[in-house]
Amino acid sequence: MSLAFGTRKGSDEADAGPTGPAAPSTQHLLRRKRRREAARTLAFLSPWLIGFSVFFAYPLVSTAYFSFTSYNGFGAPTFSGLKNWDYVFNHLPTFWQGLRNTLWLVVVMVTLRVVFGLGIGMLITKVKTGAGFFRTAFYLPYLAPPVAATVAFAFLFNPGTGPVNHLLGELGLPQPGWFASADWSKPALTLLAMWGVGDLMVIFMASLLDVPREQYEAASLDGAGPFQRFRYVTLPNISPIIMFAVVTGVIQTMQYYTQAIVAGKVASGIAGGSGQPFEPGFPNGSTWTLPQMVYKLGFQSFNYGAACVVALVLFAISMAVTSILLRRRSGFMASDD
């Protein structure tokens, strides 16, 4: 009987072993699995997280911090409260002029670039012969260095000796001052931006060629004309590409710097060389933009606090405009709401 009892006891202990307190519970195993999955996900995301932290989050936080300090780049920053913000908004009149110019360029330049790029893309997709030549011809200006392209445009649009005004005079048309006129300097910069619209043209061409042909055929059978086919077939299919072009155009134009300052230099008679005095914004502040103000305040006046304020204003406007565009859509774009 003792042998049988012992055997039965050992069997009971063996049966109870896997479900005893020493065995890991199901919840514990699930937690370990989730931790492993989270660690694996973080490992894959680590390159992006490091890049985001180093090149975006840290600079943004530092910019916000320096905007509340008095800092010249040499000594230690000292807290100054809202002094820099008050100086920029209330005692720096060129800030509002630069803001107006920048917003003008965003509204006019981005709109015309998108419309012109879309129009050129649609025309080239309709070309039966020589499409490759026209694609190359319209894309090559985009590859021109910004400084060289701006200098060339400034000489072409020279109000006194430029061939553009000479041709306009031969046709009996008005001859604007272009880069030398406060009223025409921003339109001239817009023409320069439209000349280099090859990047948008290529993107729009790819999206237009991707529109299903059967939708055009169905619309034609229903009696839709060219405008109706464009409105109800083309636009809904390429609206994400138009959104991409508008959002990236707004962000790039809010950082508009090189072309404006080079055009002002050339128009004022300073074609190159160092050590020559030049006040950005020629003529009469019409080409003065907020990115130029950031450079002047930070790297010429060594007023890093005020420069950070202007940089934060640029960032806030860019984020606000982008958010509105993404949520509400705009103008010619079809809404999915």
Rank of each mutant, 00 (worst) to 15 (best):
G119M: 01
R8V: 10
R213D: 12
V61W: 08
G117C: 02
H91E: 10
S53I: 02
G10V: 03
R40I: 02
R36H: 01
D183P: 02
T150W: 03
A224H: 03
I124A: 13
L92H: 13
T322V: 15
A22T: 15
G272M: 04
V250K: 10
A334C: 08
T161N: 12
L326A: 06
H166Y: 11
R135W: 03
S286T: 10
A137H: 02
K128V: 11
T69V: 08
S67Q: 04
Y216H: 12
S268H: 09
L314M: 14
V88K: 00
N90M: 08
L42G: 12
T289V: 13
L312E: 13
V310W: 01
G249F: 01
G285Q: 05
A224M: 04
R231I: 01
V114Y: 01
Q97V: 04
M243E: 10
S220F: 00
W96T: 11
G281T: 06
I124F: 05
R329L: 00
L105H: 06
S301Y: 08
L192S: 13
A64F: 07
L118F: 13
A137V: 14
V202G: 06
G121Q: 08
Y257F: 15
V262S: 03
E13P: 01
G75F: 01
Q175L: 04
I317Q: 11
G117R: 00
A57Q: 02
P280V: 03
P146E: 05
A224K: 01
V262W: 05
N165D: 15
T111Q: 09
L60D: 06
V321K: 02
G117S: 15
G272S: 14
V211D: 10
A306D: 12
Y257P: 07
T287V: 07
T129H: 08
F44G: 15
L209E: 13
R32S: 00
Y295V: 13
F5L: 07
M243R: 14
A316K: 09
